[in-house]
Nucleic acid binder design. Sequence first.
RNA 1: UGCCUCGUAGCUCAGUUGGUUAGAGCACUCCGCUUUUAACGGAGGGGUCGUGAGUUCGAAUCUCACUGGGGCAACCA
Length: 584
Amino acid sequence: MSNNLSEQELVRRESLQKIKDLGINPFPAAEVKVNFKTTEFTSVEFLANLVKEIEKLKGVGAVKAKQIAALLTKNKFRVSALLEADLGLTEAIEFDAGVTHTATTLEEFVGGLRVAAMGDYKPEKFPEVHIAGRFMGQRGPFAKLQDSEGRMQLYIKKGTIGETEEEQLKINALVKQLHIGDFIGVKGYLFSSQTGEVSVHVQELNFLGKSLKPLPIVKRDKQGNIYDEFKDPELRYRQRYVDLTVNPSVKEIFLKRSKVIKSMRTFFDEKGWLEVETPILQPIHGGAAARPFDTHHNTLDMPLYMRIANELYLKRLIVGGFDGVYEIGKMFRNEGMDRTHNPEFTSMEIYVAYKDYIWMMEMVENCIAYIAQEVNGTLIAQVGENTIDFTPPYRRLSMYDSIKEYTGIDVSKMDEAGLRAICKQLHIETDNTMGKGKLVDEIFGAKVEDYLIQPTYITDYPIEMTPLAKKHRTEEGLVERFELFVNGKEIANAYSELNDPIDQRERFEDQLKLAARGDDEAMVLDEDFLRALEYGMPPTSGLGIGIDRLTMMLTNQSSIQEVLFFPQMKPEVNQQKEEEEVAE
RNA sequence: UGCCUCGUAGCUCAGUUGGUUAGAGCACUCCGCUUUUAACGGAGGGGUCGUGAGUUCGAAUCUCACUGGGGCAACCA
């Protein structure tokens, strides 16, 4: 434990003791009654409602209603100010007051207007509100409380909380000890302050938990300007709990991420496909081309790998007789990190029997459109400078045609030497481990990918780079595969799955040859998977979607770290030191 | 892995060609105020300037190494 406490941390520890001295447990165990969440009801809404209420009066038009509303809010709902203003409206108000609001005095009527302007948040509707959250600052008798939904104002009037004088003094003393970030629970009733903010008039106050470290203070004004924003990425990612507490927009992203996954699951479940779980610790890291994390099982004394993909296991389940299986889960790849790669990431893979990749394209665009609609309420997404339209159908373009379209070169009939020459001409670096498929992919990656902004299927890949896909039904040297590109990034990958075990064995053997050439990401041969195929697998189409990247598109984020709660980071320095000390 | 760039108070940031005791706003403490709206008034406390070495009479500032972050590239379905 650190013994270099800052001044403010010491103050809070002293405050903790003072709370104990009051006979209050600063970390009480009992369940907290909560029957209400904060509302973002603003004074802007209040004003709009107030105008509407006033417009109901006879002889008051929209313009005058606005004038009266402004007058009332500016003068704290003082009737005298209204009368002095000489707008010639007092008769109309008095008249209507008698009819519609059963008010006997102008004061009562004006008070009624204020209550009416609270819209759905009327005191009579919420006479006993229990609300809990973090205390986020106080100004005069008004405090801010923040819960999972947002912030709301509390009215804490001195000497009104507690039945006896002794209790009241105790609460006063407690309120003095509140620091930003402390958890409290209150009971009270809703009312509107004189400026029209819906607030809780506190009648009971309970201390629920002390915050010993000061939170960063971020302030926002009504124009949406942010002051003292907590924005250092290092601090935000390392202390995501702080980020989430003080930056509501961050929470929004993760709520959307959850909706992405939930709506995708709903879409598949409604089609009757089965959600499954397959091993994360695998003896053979199959199903993709990537370096794995390796580990070791002590009891079995065997190496194990964190999965780089789950494809081969899901296909085994299709062999076993399921019509459709899908899995949403983490994959692990021991490779570089940047704004679109994290060592662990979330993928969804789905396999559906008796379908092909043509069918899959239609399924994917419907699925993504459904998700976009559920998450954002629209099929249009703004991603950086680009406006993406997820409305199906999406453009379909073969890989060779796409290269022809963006470079003017037809590479479809070229051999490895020819491709190498083209790469040189286009200033694309190559090396000897690259086969024909890889070379085509390099050209595509360098000259086409970035320009695929609107959702586009790139179809029919060279066979060399796709050992698990079925050979194309008509085109020699190609496989039935597509990738979906959006905003220049790949977000989905699908095949007509290879179900011929003899062909599959040959493809694995080709991969072994690539590995021998030095390609350390070539696939490994999985004998048990081949055995499964030998028992027979129906024609099947499979699909993988990168959940993180899809979420990035739907939340307009350019970094994967912004859509992961806890992106991978190097250890903090002091933590490293402590570990070294422990080791010594 | 290469190049560029940043690291100053709890947070966000100033800090001049190297020159007294390193500043501001918020936050914090005390006093006043108690229907306020990012920021009420007054007073006050708080910093091994990322770490270590070097140059210098003198380093937050210049040099080197290390460390962590970010960007670009490379790598990566």
